[in-house]
Design a binder for these strands. Sequence first.
DNA 1: AGCACCACTTAGGAGGCAAAAT
DNA 2: ATTTTGCCTCCTAAGTGGTGCT
Length: 491
Amino acid sequence: MTKEDKEVIKKEKQAIEDKYGWALLDGRKEKVGNFRIEPPGLFRGRGEHPKTGTLKHRVYPESVTINIGENATIPPPPEGHKWGKIIHDNTVTWLAMWKENVNDSFKYVWLAAGSSLKGQSDFKKFEKARELKKHIGHIRSEYTLELKDKLMATRQRATALYFIDKLALRAGNEKGDDVADTVGCCSLRYEHVTLEPPNRVIFDFLGKDSIRYYNEVEVSKQVYKNIEIFKRPPKKEGDMLFDRLNTTILNKYLQKSMKGLTAKVFRTYNASYTFQEELKKTVKNSTINEKLLAYNRANRQVAILCNHQRAVSKNHSDQLKRIQDKILTSKYQRYLVSKEMLELDPALKKKKPELGRLSRGITKDFIKNYEEKELEKKKAKLERDNEKRKAEGKETLTLEEMEKSKRQPTMERLQKQYDNLTKRIKAQQLLLIDKDENKTTALGTSKINYIDPRISAAWCYKYNVPIEKIFNKSLRNKFKWAVEVDENFVF
DNA sequence: AGCACCACTTAGGAGGCAAAAT
DNA sequence: ATTTTGCCTCCTAAGTGGTGCT
């Protein structure tokens, strides 16, 4: 498409956003989230979903309910149609709703992530997780005691809670057989947990979105013993590990320790807490890039804890090789610069002995390859230059003449080149580490949903990192409520 | 207790786009 | 000039957990 074509499409898109993308909430203009009805198509479930490929019907205005202020103007339905229902319920936050035919579930139109409503509930979520901080000591000592309880139901509850707390497992509601067979903590089955003496437990199951959870963990003697008991015959494959427990029982129990406490709060709490602890490894006087690496590492620890995975890109290993190659190139270039420096001032050999060691790790093959490429480049440049010269009526040069015509390097210039290359090598090495550590881990989900954004904001202030380096535009918008903290904020 | 129903948060992948690399 | 990469937005599925009824 031409620039103009794109411009037209962009404008049309913007006009739709302007028209449908806003709502009035208590007189304030608020951005609406996804306001589009899902188009018909084949249902694409994740993992082995029994309904994969079934037809998802087109949704007509007649099956859409509009939730709007009593005196507000009702947006007109598409020509020739009527809305299913108009309601005025101010106890819920959705603006429109319909029922989808494949799984019989509801779909909603809500305000956008950056809206005041979503911001408020985000704030409440993290405040609740912080509230847990005050109770966690007591909760832990209680479930540690209850691991030995005479009553099997209590023991199971304590053991499940131990996993939820230590491993950040999801609650694990029961599911029907009309959806993919995935589990969380309370719905773990016999075959999902294997024991390895003396105290190792191996988890292997499909969790939310059919993402595999595989983890080998050392547990306390009592927990090991409990699992042994819960797996004792006649229990067999296919049976529930915690047959006396479900999420309702667990959550009812948690309410007693803290009002509003449920299993999912532990994930938020442990994610944010872990992040805050990991961030302490940031080095005060390091470069911005090093600080960002520390930030991403802390983020990554949380993502690993929460098992946020992503598919490895198909050319991941190629990418790594390319970066390694670049590092080698920079190192070789730096070595060449150091040689020139030594030629210019042989006394440097004693003053800066490190200059003599720069060729380490650079193979002859690499050098040969590099020099060949360099020669190609020079020849190409020479050809271009000579074209120009001809056009200007000047004499053409040979390769040797071009080399000679270069300015003689001064020590100052060489030192600058040297320093720049050192900087570049460092940056490339950081990139390499970051990239490799990141190949199967998705950082986004924990950043968006689990890590209290105030921790990040405070970190930025404390270490003098611009907030744009860690929050993109939409995150800054989503976390508007959080950036007002000062550098001393503690989760 | 078990359910149906409902409303909300959490999740990974697809695809678009612009900057970087070639 | 063209291709690759990396970030971001969009999409919608898949969880959690509440309420009210039997």
